[in-house]
């Protein structure tokens, strides 16, 4: 565990909690892509099945459980409790265009052809593109609320910090996971355009790229 990995995890947690609190406090999920949140719930579910097979640390287990619980809570708020405020008309990204190719790729390119490993690979690939429905929704409406841009900032920061973590681990631990790194680079690139606007437009509810 290095400082980049830890701050990456905390950024990820911040993003998840920011979104959950925003929906809870405003009693509204307007501007939030339920499809992205469903994909993230699927990502955590398929990745953390190793909760049943291996124990790494109390930190590891706790964070996994928190991520899963928060992502399901978010999905529940969007599709059940505050369903009336969910803007489904603008959340029109076709998720099958992500899930089907990602599913195929995880069967073809993985570390080991076993069920848990394929599901782990699937979750890594899916996470890298899971934010696309949210970015697509913002590009359709042309605007995002300030708090939504904070959410996206911490999501992007998390992945950027993980990239530094992998560089660190490569040099100091000889650790290198090609699948995670390639997917992580793709995921980080998706946020670059957003990062630029977030910083230049004063981190407020700004018009985002079409």
């Amino acid at each position: 565990m290095n400082i980049f990995r830890l701050t990456g995890d905390l950024s990820h947690l911040a993003a998840i909690v920011i979104l959950l609190l925003k929906i809870w406090k405003t009693r509204s999920c307007a501007g939030i892509s339920g499809k992205s949140q469903l994909l993230f719930a699927l990502v955590f579910t398929t990745r953390y099945l190793d909760l049943f097979t291996s124990f790494i640390s109390l930190y590891n287990t706790s964070m996994k459980l928190i991520y899963i619980a928060c992502s399901y809570a978010t999905v529940y708020l969007i599709y059940m409790k505050f369903k009336a405020t969910y803007d489904g008309n603008h959340d029109t990204f076709r998720v099958e265009f992500l899930v089907v190719p990602v599913g195929g790729l995880s069967f073809l390119v993985n570390h080991d052809f076993s069920p848990l490993e394929i599901l782990w690979t699937f979750s890594i690939y899916l996470e890298s593109v899971a934010i696309l429905p949210q970015l697509f929704m913002i590009s359709k409406t042309g605007e995002a609320e300030t708090i939504t841009t904070h959410y996206l900032f911490f999501q992007g920061l998390y992945r950027a910090l993980y990239l530094v973590n992998w560089i660190w681990r490569f040099y100091f631990e000889g650790f290198f996971d090609l699948i995670a790194v390639v997917a992580g680079v793709v995921q980080t690139i998706l946020y670059c355009d957003f990062f630029y606007l977030y910083i230049t437009k004063g981190m407020s509810g700004c018009a985002l790229p079409a």
């Binding site: 990995r5 995890d9 990820h12 190793d50 291996s54 790494i56 640390s57 590891n60 964070m63 996994k64 991520y67 570390h111 080991d112 782990w120 993980y162 973590n165 650790f175 290198f176 996971d177 090609l178 699948i179 995670a180």
Partner: peptide
């Protein structure tokens, strides 16, 4: 190693 190394990350 690759096989076990990635499992400690979230």
């Amino acid at each position: 190693g690759n096989e076990s190394g990635h499992k400690d990350e979230l």
